[in-house]
Write a protein that binds this DNA or RNA. Sequence first.
DNA 1: TTGTACGCGTTATCAA
DNA 2: TTGATAACGCGTACAA
Lengths: 339, 339
Amino acid sequence: MARIVDVAREAGVSTATVSRVLNGKDVNPELATKVRSAVEALGYIPDRTARSLRRGASDVVALVLPDIENPFFTAVARGVEDVLHGAGYSVVLCNTDDDPGKEGRYLGVAEHENMAGVLIAPASGQPQLDALLDRGRAVVVLDRQVERPVDQVAFDNLALGEGCARELLASGFRRVACITGPVGTRTAIERASGWSRALEAAGLDAPEELLVHANFRVDGGYEALAHLLDLPEPPDAVLATNNLVGVGVLRALADGHVALATHGRGDSAGAPVPGGAIGVGIIGDLPFATSRTTDVHLVPLNPRALGTTAAQLLLDRLTDPGAPVRSIVQTITPAGARH
Amino acid sequence: MARIVDVAREAGVSTATVSRVLNGKDVNPELATKVRSAVEALGYIPDRTARSLRRGASDVVALVLPDIENPFFTAVARGVEDVLHGAGYSVVLCNTDDDPGKEGRYLGVAEHENMAGVLIAPASGQPQLDALLDRGRAVVVLDRQVERPVDQVAFDNLALGEGCARELLASGFRRVACITGPVGTRTAIERASGWSRALEAAGLDAPEELLVHANFRVDGGYEALAHLLDLPEPPDAVLATNNLVGVGVLRALADGHVALATHGRGDSAGAPVPGGAIGVGIIGDLPFATSRTTDVHLVPLNPRALGTTAAQLLLDRLTDPGAPVRSIVQTITPAGARH
DNA sequence: TTGTACGCGTTATCAA
DNA sequence: TTGATAACGCGTACAA
């Protein structure tokens, strides 16, 4: 393998000059072309490890995610890759399983591998970002907000919950339930708050029995819906606060032969829609749905755009480490948008 | 940050001894404990970049995948991570979009970042593995076979296609169509061959009009099914040769209000099942299905196990670079298994 | 502007 | 077994 000294010898210059040419410093154009052709002739590619050791930072960026099997996060990854590849960085995906321990391990890897930056959707709890921040590494938190002065991108979860609930109410549903995530998850709490706010704004109360805390996965939604349908007074509509819970809800309905209702009765009785049908609202996208989703009140999130925004934030931070911290709330497709 | 010289000074030994202790070489136990407590006291963590530069290989493994948004591949990734994390390696996911150009770029990154090894599900065409193999790096090809002496794991695609088609025939379907991937994709060709073999074994012919080459994605399956239903003599059942095509088929049926049939008429007329229902067989899994899948003839693939097998192959290669090359055909849950 | 020489932090070689 | 030191390949202060 050709090294920098080989290129220098071939071009008749010093290694320093080769290095300067490769890094865009001021060099005599004549020598520069000599160097370039030598690079070409030898097929020289700089050793990234040596460069990283010397510079104190590589051109790899870690994308730390809680669940690589969730289509939401893989779409985020696509958005991140689109931006960072274009800027010459390599993206490394790390799967934490929502486990703070694994998360800490990966953050340690990012630190000790001298990675240029970290994009992270934190597992429940406070991510251990201090070591990275102290070292001046670029860090961007996405999707789940934290109480720290760090660049962040997230959704307005309260508005999402409120918007989706309002849409169901506008369709005539009156007894709208909400299936959200664990009590310790901020996203889950905020979206549920939006739901209750929408109900109260419509002059309805949001009874505790209609708010179910499930896990944020398919089985959580599945079991939660079964529970709701077993209530003495079952809801006439249900709001699933994330994509996986939404999948679970739809599958539970299909398994229980319960139809999807587009519109509620609209009276204040709070009784289920005739025929046992039920309305469904979902915050999120269903790229692998195996049924029609035209009757579902979907609030799409565009996770890919979340990824591009976060990546752009990281690039900005890399170019200007001293810039003030930014916290962006991602705007959403207007409520009422359907697909 | 503490470096190895600090530890050496603290323990009253040389850096060489510290290095030996950390890498499990023979050292006087007494000195070893001194070193360990010095490491503990200083919170010393070896710099992975320097180690990588010196050793010529890091402890990072690249997992190069054609589509990170396909649940099949994310499940593979989980299996890979399970094994490699346990062995002290970090896994880096790389998304090629089935683009040989992107794939080549990532393989270059793996090479020049001195990664310990590469696991790859190649994009269509021959992956550029020579540089890595020439350098003696560990490489394992998974899911899609290549004509080279490299460690590989793949499914018996012909048996998969044959098994799923046979299952449909056993349920009484007689005019079984097949939607497979592009003609340039080996997996697509092999699974389709299995389909035609099963039909011929049952004394039926496999007419060209019932074999559709779509892309291997959801929209491919969707459009292919619409096409099949528009035929003068539509099939009474359809075999989708991968998970995404299966999703597309099921969604097309739902959109077209065509029911899923469990059993065909069983006569040789080749007419569709009464009521316009149609049988469906899918090679793959549907973790995000929003409908019941009990009426679908599913052939589960267990991609996670594929990942663990591939990772194990890589570990074996890393420990014994000179061992003979192995090509493993992953065994499948027996045909007839349903879920 | 260019070249020389050193340093990044670790591991491997060699002599003791 | 242990220690001193060279070497991995590159970037950059310093001197020219």
